[in-house]
């Protein structure tokens, strides 16, 4: 089984996000990029499948700052092959990324392509289904379970309220992972450092990204509070006392 996992780096939402002087993009000067958390689940799911049924796991990502760490971490978790795609990714959208990855993925001839179901900065669709369109493969997303059988995969698709649909998908296919069957495994930094010495990251170059299909922005701005919460201030004791007052008012105490 040849499994390819696509990962994307996204803004760390814990940091303060500001809009740059162009007014239509995030200010990258202070932006910290981290692996999309759903892609982390896709890596976990891919490695679980390999551990259960054998095969090879290849992780593919765009070559932007921080990508080496992300790829070596995936190798430390059990990925066999690492590839970074080189291009001018300034202002890239998902349509362009999907097209850039399509060339590389066709070369890899995967049975299964896994990626996170969404990313926090998606504005023109999600990478998985866009890629499925480019590769003319079926796509199913919002998955929290994947198993493999001859020529097909059985997936667990999440619906609201905890309802799950079990679906059969013909291979090759692209799947959008919401959650792996177990939490993404932890690897120690020392192990990642060790892997850095023994693993290599292959490179592929793509020229002329095609952004057709994404919207053109007129304005980007920080969300304006509709009705900002009444803020309670003071020491922990004072905040607790005020909250107890609110609980009493609401008839809970």
């Amino acid at each position: 089984m040849n499994i390819v996992i696509l990962v994307k780096l996204v803004p760390d939402l814990v940091e303060e996000l500001t809009v740059d002087t162009s007014g239509i993009a995030l200010d990258t000067a202070w932006l910290r990029l981290i692996i999309n958390e759903f892609d982390d689940h896709a890596i976990e799911q891919g490695i679980l499948l390999k551990e259960r049924g054998g095969g090879q796991v290849t992780v593919v990502a765009a070559d932007i700052e921080g990508v080496d760490d992300v790829l070596f971490t995936a190798a430390a978790k059990g990925a066999d092959r690492l590839i970074k795609v080189k291009a001018d990714f300034t202002g890239v959208n998902n349509h362009a990324l999907a097209r850039a990855f399509t060339t590389v993925i066709k070369e890899l001839q995967p049975d299964l392509v896994l990626t996170g179901v969404q990313a926090n900065n998606d504005l023109d669709g999600s990478l998985g289904p866009l890629l499925a369109g480019c590769l003319e493969m079926p796509y199913v997303g919002y998955l929290s379970g994947v198993s493999l059988a001859e020529g097909k995969t059985k997936v667990r698709k999440e619906y609201p309220g905890g309802l799950i649909a079990e679906m059969d998908v013909t291979l090759p296919a692209v799947l959008g992972i919401q959650a792996a069957e177990q939490p993404p495994r932890y690897v120690a930094v020392s192990k990642v450092r060790q892997v850095m010495k023994t693993s290599t990251i292959e490179e592929r170059t793509v020229s002329g990204l095609d952004m057709t299909g994404g919207p053109t922005l007129a304005r980007m701005f920080q969300t304006e509070a509709g009705q900002r919460a009444t803020m309670i201030t003071g020491s922990p004791d004072e905040v607790a006392a005020k909250l107890v007052g609110i609980f009493k008012e609401l008839g809970v105490l």
């Binding site: 289904p129 866009l130 499925a132 369109g133 796509y139 997303g141 919002y142 959008g176 299909g213």
Partner: peptide, 9 residues
């Protein structure tokens, strides 16, 4: 989301 992106391509 299973539909829109794929249809876009």
């Amino acid at each position: 989301t299973d539909l829109a992106s794929t249809l876009s391509i």
